[in-house]
Amino acid sequence: MKDTSEQTSIFLFEDDAGLASEIILAFAREGLTVLLLATEDELVTVAGPGKSCVLIMDRMVDNVDSLAILERLRASGNRTPVIVISSLASVDERIKGLKGGGDDYLIKPFAMGELIARVESLRRRTPDDRRTTLSVGTLSMDIIGRTVVRGKRSIPMPPREFSLLEFLMRRPDQVVTRTMILEDVWKYKGTIDTNIVDVHMGNLRRKIDGEGEVPMIKSQRGIGFILTSDDR
């Protein structure tokens, strides 16, 4: 996984020492540093104007709902990317977390690989990405014209596969999980037992990775998928 820690810091607002240690260690294995925050004052300071960071925020800290802190941040105009982690798993609670200012909401217990993938997604997200043309290596996409080209080869595809490829091309060299794809491309929420992502990804691979071409879409066992450049 590519280390972009010089551009974006990662902070954790968590009062469970055991879970905090697990998260910090998991990110360290990927070459990423996570700094633990102990108080709201520390959180507000690191997420202040001009600071480039991502916050992992536990929903309940010291028996207080931290969404109140997040709502104050958002009310002040702060747009720091925040992923809320919580054992409050109902649809209403997830909606409350997102409406309260969370950019993402991950239910406990979770796989550390998924948390890392979701944080990486937030780190690479621009505040207002309005690009209408995307390119990764020799693969290019015109979102307005709805066309995809690899090298000199035009690749027609139905709307769902187009949206799936757009999702990947906005996150090059980044592992994305099946859950992330279901939530963004299919707009599904919660745990869903389906192989729909694998079916569509298989179709997409056969179209993108032609005979004799360097494979660009790769599986990450136990986690998800990654789109890599073919010009290395």
Score class of each variant (00 low, 15 high):
residue 94 R to V: 05
residue 124 R to A: 15
residue 53 C to W: 04
residue 217 I to V: 10
residue 232 R to H: 12
residue 177 T to V: 04
residue 159 P to M: 09
residue 196 I to Q: 11
residue 204 L to Q: 00
residue 170 R to T: 06
residue 22 E to N: 13
residue 164 L to G: 02
residue 201 M to R: 01
residue 44 V to F: 13
residue 175 V to G: 01
residue 36 L to C: 06
residue 67 L to V: 12
residue 120 E to T: 08
residue 192 I to N: 15
residue 78 N to V: 12
residue 69 I to K: 09
residue 100 G to W: 07
residue 226 I to P: 02
residue 15 D to R: 11
residue 141 M to N: 00
residue 160 R to C: 06
residue 148 V to D: 05
residue 18 G to L: 13
residue 115 L to Y: 07
residue 92 D to C: 02
residue 47 A to R: 01
residue 21 S to D: 11
residue 195 N to V: 14
residue 63 N to P: 08
residue 114 E to Q: 09
residue 14 E to I: 08
residue 173 D to Q: 11
residue 2 K to L: 13
residue 38 A to T: 13
residue 226 I to H: 00
residue 161 E to P: 08
residue 150 R to K: 08
residue 69 I to M: 11
residue 15 D to I: 10
residue 169 M to F: 08
residue 129 D to N: 11
residue 71 E to K: 14
residue 112 M to S: 15
residue 194 T to D: 13
residue 202 G to S: 04
residue 164 L to I: 09
residue 111 A to C: 07
residue 51 K to A: 13
residue 65 D to E: 12
residue 111 A to V: 10
residue 188 Y to V: 12
residue 76 S to R: 15
residue 231 D to P: 06
residue 209 D to R: 01
residue 76 S to L: 09
residue 136 V to A: 04
residue 213 E to K: 11
residue 22 E to F: 11
residue 119 V to R: 02
residue 148 V to A: 01
residue 155 I to D: 09
residue 202 G to V: 00
residue 191 T to P: 10
residue 121 S to W: 14
residue 84 V to F: 09
residue 221 R to L: 14
residue 44 V to I: 15
residue 114 E to G: 00
residue 95 I to V: 14
residue 8 T to D: 06
residue 63 N to I: 10
residue 166 E to R: 10
residue 109 P to S: 01
residue 151 G to F: 12
residue 25 L to G: 02
residue 64 V to F: 14
residue 84 V to N: 04
residue 105 Y to A: 01
residue 74 R to G: 06
residue 73 L to D: 02
residue 88 L to E: 00
residue 226 I to G: 02
residue 140 S to G: 03
residue 138 T to A: 08
residue 230 D to L: 04
residue 66 S to G: 03
residue 166 E to T: 14
residue 114 E to C: 03
residue 54 V to M: 01
residue 88 L to K: 02
residue 149 V to H: 08
residue 95 I to C: 00
residue 11 F to T: 00
residue 126 T to W: 15
residue 167 F to Y: 13
residue 37 L to A: 05
residue 100 G to P: 05
residue 48 G to H: 11
residue 66 S to K: 08
residue 75 A to C: 09
residue 119 V to F: 14
residue 97 G to T: 00
residue 116 I to L: 00
residue 44 V to M: 11
residue 58 D to K: 07
residue 85 I to L: 02
residue 216 M to S: 08
residue 156 P to A: 09
residue 153 R to E: 09
residue 11 F to S: 02
residue 110 F to G: 01
residue 153 R to Y: 09
residue 159 P to D: 14
residue 205 R to Q: 13
residue 147 T to P: 04
residue 24 I to Q: 12
residue 230 D to W: 06
residue 193 D to M: 14
residue 85 I to Y: 02
residue 90 S to D: 05
residue 212 G to V: 00
residue 25 L to C: 08
residue 89 A to Q: 09
residue 155 I to Y: 13
residue 150 R to Q: 05
residue 186 W to S: 01
residue 176 V to D: 04
residue 185 V to N: 01
residue 27 F to W: 00
residue 191 T to C: 12
residue 132 T to Q: 14
residue 162 F to C: 05
